[in-house]
Simulated scan of single mutants.
Amino acid sequence: MRRLFALLSLLLLAAPAFAETAPKPLYRDPVYDGAADVSSIYDRAQHRWVMFYTNRRATLKLPDPKDVSWVHGTPIGMAISKNGLKWRYAGMAKFPAACTGPTLWAPEMYYEAGTYHMWLTVVPGIYISWGHGATAKIVHLTSPDLKSWTCSDTVETGSERVIDPSVIKLSDHHYRLWYKDERKGSRIFALDSDDLVHWKKVLNHPVIDTNAEGPKVFFFKGWYWLIADKWEGLIVLRSNDAASWELQPTRLLEQPGTHATDNAKGQHADVIVNDGHAFIYYFVHQENAPEAKTDPYWHQRTAVQVAELHFDKGWLSVDRNADVTTPLMAPE
């Protein structure tokens, strides 16, 4: 009996290390309830993960249901986590007014050699319709600590309305940035740089001849992958050189999940490759949530979810209903 009691005690002590599961939803913004377009990075000094996200003003109930000013005037929210499974609100990011504006979208995070980099979509106003916003630009900021930010430069693309940057390092002093050009059919284009400041266009044609937004590029299982939001699930492209891309036959997160906050298409995702795993962080509009039956504005609200990507016969798959229990490790 004593041996059995000792064994049970050991199991109970060990259980918390294995029992933590990412909740559904993973995260909701406590101020506006409109967290979207996330990008996360590891804070080397604080030993924790920091999620930056577009903080849509989803609780606004505007008289005109077609008024989209709630998707403008958006700050960048922050959440923190020790393990990527449980997140808590950490306020709103503060940026220099000299290079930003009233509407901030889709942060993209990158770290190298003691400096944190953020590429941020800046829209110079708050607009009631999508057509009113004449311009949008991608601004580059840097920080030593993820708190104080300095204006660096504006990415020159040759277009007056570009959004949704994604940046990776391909080799020593060779970086590539993908973005959506809304003046060119909402296609996704790429730029190259050797210093993260001066960029030049890789090709004059888009990576794929289809409209999409929120590209996210990463390396996993021997391939470069580009995931983008097609507004009917996420398209997936793969490449062995990050230049020529092949379209996956199936889309990710096109079919709703079973959870009450995850039962619509997944949108504008971030992907973290960590310790041999790849995790996709996406947002879901709450149009099918129970509250939407009585609140016609509830569809504006968005929740962040997480799932693990799997490499299956050369392509990517995901089970959005499966529990995520693998924590994020500190990067090397």
Rank of each mutant, 00 (worst) to 15 (best):
L7V: 08
L8W: 13
S9C: 09
A17E: 07
A19M: 08
E20T: 13
P23C: 06
L26C: 07
D29Q: 02
G34Q: 04
A36C: 13
D37M: 06
D37T: 14
D37N: 10
S39L: 07
S39Y: 12
I41P: 07
I41D: 01
Y42G: 03
D43K: 13
D43E: 02
Q46R: 09
W49I: 03
V50Q: 08
T54N: 12
L60K: 11
S69M: 11
H72I: 09
H72E: 05
T74R: 13
G77W: 02
M78C: 00
M78P: 01
K82S: 09
L85M: 07
K86P: 07
W87M: 01
A93G: 14
F95S: 00
P96V: 08
C99A: 00
T100D: 03
G101M: 11
P102R: 14
T103L: 05
L104P: 12
A106E: 03
P107V: 12
E112C: 09
E112H: 12
A113H: 12
L120A: 06
L120G: 14
I126M: 00
S129G: 15
H132R: 12
G133V: 06
A136H: 08
V139Y: 08
H140K: 10
P144E: 02
P144S: 00
L146F: 15
L146E: 10
K147C: 09
S148K: 15
C151R: 08
C151Q: 06
S152A: 12
T157F: 07
T157A: 03
G158I: 08
D164V: 01
D164T: 08
S171W: 13
Y175M: 05
R176I: 14
R176F: 13
W178P: 04
R183T: 07
K184S: 04
S186L: 05
S186K: 09
I188A: 01
I188K: 00
A190Q: 14
A190T: 13
L191T: 10
L191I: 07
D194H: 10
D194I: 08
L196G: 02
K200A: 14
K201H: 11
V202G: 06
N204D: 12
I208C: 01
D209W: 15
A212G: 11
P215G: 06
P215D: 03
F218C: 01
F219T: 09
G222C: 00
I227P: 09
I227H: 05
A228F: 14
D229F: 13
W231L: 10
L234P: 10
L237T: 05
L237I: 08
A242Y: 12
Q248V: 13
L253I: 11
Q255N: 09
Q255A: 15
Q255K: 13
H259R: 07
N263M: 07
G266S: 09
Q267R: 12
Q267P: 07
V271Q: 11
I272R: 05
V273D: 01
N274F: 04
G276K: 15
A278W: 14
F279C: 00
I280L: 07
Y281M: 05
Y281C: 05
Y281D: 02
H285S: 10
A289N: 04
E291L: 07
E291D: 02
A292K: 15
K293Y: 05
Q300F: 11
R301C: 06
R301G: 04
T302V: 05
V304G: 09
V304K: 08
Q305R: 05
H310S: 04
D312S: 04
W315E: 02
L316A: 01
D319L: 09
N321E: 03
A322P: 06
D323Q: 03
V324N: 00
V324M: 04
M329D: 02
P331G: 06
E332R: 10
